[in-house]
Structure formats: structure tokens, C-alpha cells
Design a protein around this nucleic acid. Structure first.
Length: 197
DNA sequence: TATAAGATTTACT
DNA sequence: GTAAATCTTATAT
């Protein structure tokens, strides 16, 4: 129970962390408005050797710099000029692992989420990496943000999905990554309405 | 400086 | 099913 502590993020195995993030709450508290959702879909990006990652080959730019910091902060970037994608940075400083959050099931502040997005159906609000950031109010200015903060953090409320509901599959939208696109680094909840297609 | 492409979503044919 | 929206980064002039 409680906020996920720093050591949760700074462990070595990013696949294990991605797996354990399912069922946790992603909480934002911007401008005094609390919104949260339960994570039902995420993907692991395993550092400089992973062709699907922005840090493949040791690439180091202003954009990806937060990934090289110690785990427990956010990495947010703009995709296709429109969508903000939210990642949790894991592992220790200098090892740029991350977990992309791809789907959440809205829990708190659903009215606020509906104001932020044109979608009306609850299960559509957090279905897809670009949509959940809009529903929660996350933008690129939050890249590098500390996940121990009141405004942005992950929370364990004790909820656990049964192991037989968790699906491992290849990552989405990373065809450019060659063989690495086939790795089963995606974790999702079977049958959940907030999992993207 | 210029150009292409991207961890996506939505609207339209 | 196809295409447009829209902007930062990476690679090339």
C-alpha cells in the first residue's frame, strides 16, 4: 500500500517491473485536481541494446536524457507532433531502462478526464498511450519529473490482478525495430476494456 | 539549413 | 481501409 518507493523502480529487471506495474494506480494531482487510473497495459524498453528504444546504440539527446538518470522519474515525449507518451524510468543512473504505460482504467477524477478529452466513454479515456496522458493532463514538461511527488506518482492500493489474466505479447508500433519488435515485452490484462488493440 | 520519420489517434472514403 | 494532423529529433547538405 502507498506510493511506490524509489527502490521499486531502481531494481534491475525491467520486465519484472513492467509486470508488477499492472494493477497499480497512476495518479496525477495538477492544479489541485486529482485524477488516477489503474494500469492495464504497459511495455518494457530495455536500454541501449533494444532497437525499439529511443536510447538504442547509446543515443543521448536532450529528449532522452531523463532515461539515463536513476529510476523513479518520468520520461515523457511527443510522438507524431501530437501525442504525449508517458514512461516510467527504471534501473540505476546510466542504465536507461523504461516502461511505457499504454492503457489505464479510469478510477478517480473521471469527470476531469472527460473534460480533457473528447471521448465520452469511460473505458476509452485511458485506452492507448496518447489518450491516457491527455486524460491525466501529462505533458512533455513533466519529463524528468520525480515520481515521489504529490503531483505525479504511482500508487499501490493493494489491488492485484490474477496471474492468469496477464498476457505477454510483442510490443505495438515498433516494426522498425527488426527482430526486437518480436520480443514479448508487452504486458496487458486479458479482456480489459482499456487495453488498446 | 533542410528533410524525413516517428513507442499515435482520429476522421473520412 | 486510407490519410491527415503536427513538431521534435536525427541525418544529411
Amino acid at each position: 500500500m502507498g506510493k511506490l518507493p524509489k527502490y521499486f523502480y531502481q531494481r534491475e529487471d525491467v520486465l519484472k517491473i513492467a509486470h508488477e506495474l499492472l494493477g497499480k494506480l497512476l495518479v496525477t494531482n495538477f492544479d489541485g485536481l486529482r485524477t488516477s487510473g489503474r494500469i492495464v497495459e504497459c511495455e518494457a524498453y530495455a536500454g541501449t541494446g533494444d532497437r525499439a528504444s529511443h536510447v538504442y546504440g547509446g543515443r543521448r539527446t536532450t529528449r532522452v536524457e531523463p532515461m539515463y538518470a536513476a529510476g523513479g522519474i518520468a520520461y515523457v515525449y511527443l510522438c507524431y507532433g501530437i501525442h504525449h507518451l508517458f514512461n516510467v524510468v527504471t534501473n540505476v543512473a546510466g542504465t536507461p531502462h523504461a516502461v511505457l504505460i499504454r492503457g489505464i482504467e479510469p478510477v478517480e477524477g473521471i469527470d476531469m478526464m472527460q473534460l480533457r478529452t473528447p471521448s465520452r466513454h469511460i473505458y476509452q479515456l485511458g485506452k492507448g498511450p496518447g489518450k491516457l496522458t491527455r486524460a491525466l493532463g501529462i505533458h512533455t514538461i513533466h519529463s524528468g519529473y520525480n515520481l515521489q511527488s504529490r503531483e505525479l506518482h504511482l500508487y499501490d492500493d493493494g489491488f492485484v490482478y490474477p496471474e492468469n489474466k496477464i498476457i505477454r505479447s510483442p510490443r505495438i508500433g515498433v516494426d522498425y525495430a527488426g527482430d526486437d519488435a518480436l520480443l514479448p515485452y508487452r504486458f496487458s490484462i486479458e479482456g480489459n476494456k482499456s487495453v488498446s488493440k
